[in-house]
Design a protein around this nucleic acid. Structure first.
Lengths: 206, 206
DNA sequence: CAAAAAATTGCACGGCACGCAAGTTTGCAC
DNA sequence: GTGCAAACTTGCGTGCCGTGCAATTTTTTG
């Protein structure tokens, strides 16, 4: 009911304040004020500022896993993962996440929250894989899940590396590039590492 | 000089207190007292209790990456990774880490610190891979690094799942099993996922 | 409308993390 | 040894965190 609205109000207030006042200015009290609730109530919704900021991240990953879970179990998992990533079409969703990722490098607490989100996602993925392939060992399922999630993380890292010189936050191509990099990373995993150490059955044609 | 000794004294004090008094009893003051320093000095060495507890973890991962970096660049990376994992021979090093991992599930802060350690390790590994294969893209190097690290994480997860019913902390086979699982996970990655979704050379009929 | 259930709020408390400035130790040259 | 500088430690103060608790307000329901 109204709780969802309050929750998003908190998140928006936090993100807005991050843009205007910077990370250092974020306190539970100021965010709560901006969201129109008391400090104490803030802590009823989130255990920390970082958790509130991380909410978009959490939701997107949850959503991606959900999409993947719905796909036909017959297609192989890595192809399904590519599809799931490509379903993240809405730049409006990806944009705050991209932004936050760039902030995180300077703020360990934030970075750790994001790692936790990825990890939760990996656990969910492990369950899905286990359900799809009851013949495999739990270890194998977990390794595969971690690899897929790892590809996602690698994409963020490569993307922010590539951004480097152009910190133009307003450029809409920025999030487009991120989405492309994500898809490329998972595809890379699916196709092996021809340019690196892995033996590839067929080098893919550019 | 003496700083290293103080540092390890803090870590040992923290680990000891965790065993005797439990996680909830850990405060910066009590740990500092046990280590024979002031509370303020504790924070000169570590930014938090969790960081102190995580130190063995951090060191082992750092060490593993170092070992891998020393190996002959000619052998493929995943085989080298197996070797690096197998070099973690000393149960005395692995034991506190195993212990800590089991504690972490109940303590998000601790779990996040461990994730951060894995992540730092992945970044170091990315650099190594990039140095070894200058032909590959940075993205491919990062994906591969994350996969290797992911295998490590998967091993811990599978190990703790398998442990489940036998929480006998005194059993020395516990850490032996962990080491075996780690090696198995990386080997799994090296050899592909025949039992799961990955295409094998001879595809079985669906 | 009244009772019950759920949500919000203020208060208080112990602890965290760190800046700062005053001690204390250590190393080194003479 | 003496003196001195650099490095390390310590106490103090401060603002904020995260949560238990009980009181209050809001919402739901019969």
């Amino acid at each position: 009911m109204n709780k969802a609205a309050t929750r998003t109000a908190i998140v928006h207030a936090a993100l807005a304040q991050l843009e205007t006042a910077g990370y250092a200015a974020l306190t539970a009290e100021s965010v709560a004020d901006a969201a129109g609730i008391s400090r104490r109530t803030f802590f009823n919704y989130f255990p920390s500022i970082e958790a509130a900021l991380n909410e978009p991240n959490r939701l997107l990953l949850e959503n991606a896993v959900g999409v993947l879970d719905e796909l036909d179990p017959a297609i192989d998992l890595l192809s399904a993962a590519v599809t799931a990533v490509e379903s993240l079409v809405d730049p409006a969703l990806l944009e705050p996440i991209a932004n936050l990722y760039l902030h995180a490098s300077a703020h360990p607490q934030m970075a750790r929250m994001q790692l936790e989100a990825w990890n939760d996602c990996a656990e969910a993925l492990t369950e899905i894989i286990t359900a799809r392939a009851p013949h495999g060992t739990p270890l194998a399922a977990s390794v595969l899940a971690q690899s897929v999630i790892g590809a996602g993380k690698a994409a963020f890292a490569a993307w922010s590396r590539e951004l480097g010189e152009s910190p133009d936050a307003a450029d809409p191509r920025r999030t487009a590039l991120l989405r492309a990099t994500l898809a490329e990373a998972v595809a890379q995993l699916r196709d092996g590492f021809p340019s690196l150490q892995r033996r590839a059955p067929h080098p893919r044609k550019a």
